[in-house]
Write a protein that binds this DNA or RNA. Structure first.
Lengths: 359, 359
DNA sequence: ATTATTTTCGTGTGCGCACACACAAATGTA
DNA sequence: TACATTTGTGTGTGCGCACACGAAAATAAT
């Protein structure tokens, strides 16, 4: 491991000059710059990141704009925990995180939190662009201020985000299609269950449904696929609607629930009807895992949301500290979780959050 | 983030004294030690690991003893790549890696490489304890010399390894049992395919088989399970034996191949017989992935071997640098790979290895 | 040729910590 | 009382790098 001092000695110049070349600070004559670059090359010199971090002593304020989670919607707890884990790892490199959470059913809260966020003048932003139109307003400001940003979990094309970190929703549905086909017999039917609260993550969910159907189509599977829309806002009615539907369509042997609130569906179904059903859901929330454990859900497609949060911070940190430009899309694995490998889906997501970290 | 200097100022002593307390170097009066510890506690002080690593400038020689890989047996390439990745990440923290590879079919090569390894007087050892008896000799020496070691991929109980990193083989087989059951119809049969080269990883493979049968038993599944032993040393005979077997047992619709050489089996089977077969294999080697891609294999159980290598070095580094004691077993996830999520199994394993890194 | 200006480069300090060394106070020994 | 030994504490240097400052060399302006 050659150090700057070593290189300086070899090149016959001072350490300062080497430093200038490495960081393109300018003020070095073309001749010596070439010479030094060659020597750096030859010794394939790399900065000692440890020493570099220590000396530079720079602070990077990274602000995150993600949905709140609550008892009903626990999904966003996982990315948050991933963010905090990464923060813990990178804080000694000068990365500082501040989280802003908004109500995912209220776009004004999204805008409000963003305004607060912008006031703190962050160096970079990680956001879950739940609302498409509002997001376009938001990123316009970020673009103007030259603040880099990345999209977490939800993707919108055509904007200047440095990357997207999340799952390919179509593929997630596609895999579900295969699992459904595997689970059912020749002449069974299945239903795609949509909930009224879908308005939020609408894009991802419709892509999952497209993927699900896509698999069946690509493989020429003549499975009878019904559609069911449930309004979860009124649990009593929802429950009734669900059970009546199943009653009327007793040949249905599978349900495809393309949202993270799969366990809500399983919990609404009467026990006698639940037994023979093959229900495929999304995301390893606490309730979903419980439902899987109890055998109510047969499959969960995990997108490793914890890792998405972690990777978002890591990617942004690498971008800020080392100017490492990520690829345009970073796709999370499509992980198949069944009762028998459930323990590996529990990840760190079910730890408790003690305090809201911030800078 | 309070620094030692801050603490020193608060405590009214010098930085050196704080340093002594933090590192238990002794030579501090009981009274001031208590006082300082209290202050450290109050400010929940943590060392800046960056500065710490830079200043200490310690070197840790970690030697790895793992099987060679070749065209026939590519499995061990993945852990090696993981090891190298981790090395790259931790080298600036003073971790130095030296790899010793042995012939996994020749225990004398194992002992020979270990002898070489020991000559270099490593601070810690990561090893794949392929041979049980020889391993007991080996760890006895390590124990005597007080050199910490951990087991990678293969587990042997009752020894003083600081941890085991790898898959729970029984569970891997158990999940396979479920997948097989899902794939087959009511009255189909399946076969467990064993190969003569199994002598090596014998323990893990027999545990997988036990797990496979365990699932069927636990769920009262009356699947007809046959056994087939194939001697791979003679490919022509093997091929013949395999196809004859399938010919004679046309009701067999599934094969369980509990080894990483699953693609060898699929490639031996005549095309007409291959189509209707549901073959479940292990490990995401290049050839297995190809076989999965081509639809010959239906499922692969991955143990994320790359991560096993990475985690081994990470765990050992944390142990050496921060004295962080790992839990006794670190289990790798049981990942279900199908054609549709294959891209996430490709990981970094298929990059090319340029050079043999060492210290 | 002299001075002013720009380009090019060297030096010094500090990031937070580890560790060697020096020194003072406390205790023991004669 | 004088000296040796032990215990307790402070100081200084360096890890590899970032960056500010200032000095020297090269060039331009007068």
């Amino acid at each position: 491991m050659a150090t700057i001092k070593d290189i300086a000695k070899i090149a016959g110049v001072s350490e300062g000059t080497i430093d200038r070349v490495i960081h393109n600070r300018g003020g070095v004559s073309a001749k010596t710059e070439i010479k030094i670059k060659k020597i750096l090359e030859e010794h394939n010199f790399t900065l000692n990141p440890i020493a570099s971090a220590l000396a530079s002593n720079k602070k990077y304020k990274v602000s995150c704009l993600i949905p709140q989670y609550d008892e009903q919607n626990t999904f966003w707890k996982s990315p948050l925990l991933g963010i905090l884990k990464a923060y813990d790892e990178f804080k000694t490199f000068g990365v500082q995180i501040k989280n802003y959470t908004f109500n995912q059913f209220d776009s004004s809260s999204y805008l409000k939190q963003f305004a607060d966020l912008l006031n703190e003048k962050p160096h970079a932003v990680v956001l879950a662009p739940i609302f498409e139109l509002e997001t376009k307003q938001i990123v316009e400001q970020l673009d103007t201020l030259n603040i880099p940003y990345l999209f977490l979990n939800i993707d919108i094309d055509g904007l200047n985000n440095i990357t997207f970190i999340g799952q390919d929703s179509y593929k997630g549905g596609y895999v579900s299609g295969k699992l459904m086909h595997l689970s059912l017999e020749e002449h069974d039917a299945c239903a795609i269950v949509q909930t009224r609260l879908n308005i939020t993550n609408y894009l991802a969910i419709s892509k999952r449904i497209k993927g699900f159907k896509g698999y069946l189509k690509d493989h020429n599977i003549k499975l009878n696929v019904l559609n069911l829309s449930i309004d979860l806002l009124n649990p009593i009615l929802a429950k009734e609607a669900l059970n009546t539907f199943l009653e009327n369509h007793s040949h249905i042997k599978g349900l495809f629930v393309p949202t993270s609130r799969s366990s809500v569906i399983t919990d609404f179904i009467n026990e006698d009807k639940l037994k023979p059903l093959h229900i495929i859901g999304f995301d390893t929330t606490k309730n979903n895992l419980k439902s899987l454990q109890e055998g109510k859900l047969k499959f969960l497609i995990s997108q490793r949301a914890f890792n998405q949060g972690y990777d978002a911070i890591k990617t942004m940190s690498d971008f800020l500290i080392y100017k490492k430009v990520p690829s345009k899309k970073i796709y999370s694995p499509i992980q198949i979780i069944i009762k028998e490998n459930i323990e590996f889906a529990i990840e760190e997501s079910n730890k408790d959050l003690e305090s809201a970290h911030s800078y």
